[in-house]
Design a protein around this nucleic acid. Sequence first.
DNA 1: CCGCTCATGTAACAGGTTACATGATTTA
DNA 2: TAAATCATGTAACCTGTTACATGAGCGG
Lengths: 192, 192
Amino acid sequence: MALRHAVLAALLDGELSGYQLAKAFDLGVANFWHARPQQLYAELTRLEKDGLIAGRAVVQETRPTKRLFHVTDAGLAELEEFTAASAKPSFIRDDLLVKVQAADHVDPETLIARLAERVAFAQAKIDLFGTLLRGMRGDRTEEEFLCHGRRIGPYLTCLRGLAFEQGNRDWCERTLTVLRERRETRPPKGRG
Amino acid sequence: MALRHAVLAALLDGELSGYQLAKAFDLGVANFWHARPQQLYAELTRLEKDGLIAGRAVVQETRPTKRLFHVTDAGLAELEEFTAASAKPSFIRDDLLVKVQAADHVDPETLIARLAERVAFAQAKIDLFGTLLRGMRGDRTEEEFLCHGRRIGPYLTCLRGLAFEQGNRDWCERTLTVLRERRETRPPKGRG
DNA sequence: CCGCTCATGTAACAGGTTACATGATTTA
DNA sequence: TAAATCATGTAACCTGTTACATGAGCGG
């Protein structure tokens, strides 16, 4: 049950409502985990029941009342225990790679379209992560911030998210180049 | 249902038994998807029932009889259709990143141990992928192979797997450096 | 004789996705 | 008046993991 710990880690940055948490986990910002709002609301309920987080209701004038959650001491202990256990290796699981694996048997033009889509998506995330990183470090240099900053966890995971998307973009562009060059060298079946 | 298509894509490289497929998907070699043997046996049964793959029994002398599967025309059509649909974006979902997100609240020494483990794992996969790539391209250069090779799909996905693990290793090493430098600058609570 | 490889599964459970539901306010 | 944002969930379904089961040969 790792979503549990992902939620705890996210709540370390300050009190959040389910809605705010859902936005952070859902909308591309998910730099260390990804989850749907429904999962998060369910997990928050369970975490509170188990005493790992505590919530307080905040009544608002124009908006519905929301509940802000924070991690309890028991929650911190749970995180510490989780960190002590060795992490499972993470594997790639990507629709696009399945499609490229079949590259020699499917229409290259279709594949080229899919790769171009992914390049655009990756670039958008790269820009987003860049903005987030700049926001976190303020006017300090990265080196300065990582050495002396107070809260570097989110910055470090954001760096991984950035590198991941750069890897996606670069690989897609390389693959696009290869497919386009082959298109010129070896024309599609039925015409050559 | 994407495992379905991952299995189809894997079977394009030639006839495989459930056992061989399981090894390819399970033992770290999984450069474009990952699945447990139990999942694969179940999926093969379903794929055959739906006519997307066909199997033939091969009786062996010393070993139990095995079934070798290949993709049918219907299977190829299914893959073509799958490729035409736009791929879902892939997200990071990694225990280790959750732990690093909580870096400012857990014991740095524990975290350092986890990161070192991951570096070793990533390096092992990097070496493995390097060997696989060399095996696929033979004595040709990568450029030569990608331009004129007959089956480049597996090579391209392997390149992505390689880059992913290099990204893991580099990020872990960067993070290790940061944590170790901070250890010297800001001693742990309770001693300083 | 012990453990590994080949070869294939079943059953129970945990985790994740999709669809649906509600209801107020603000913005175009 | 249509759509987006705030705010929270339920129910059904699909996917993935863990544990267990079987049985033969091969290497140390």
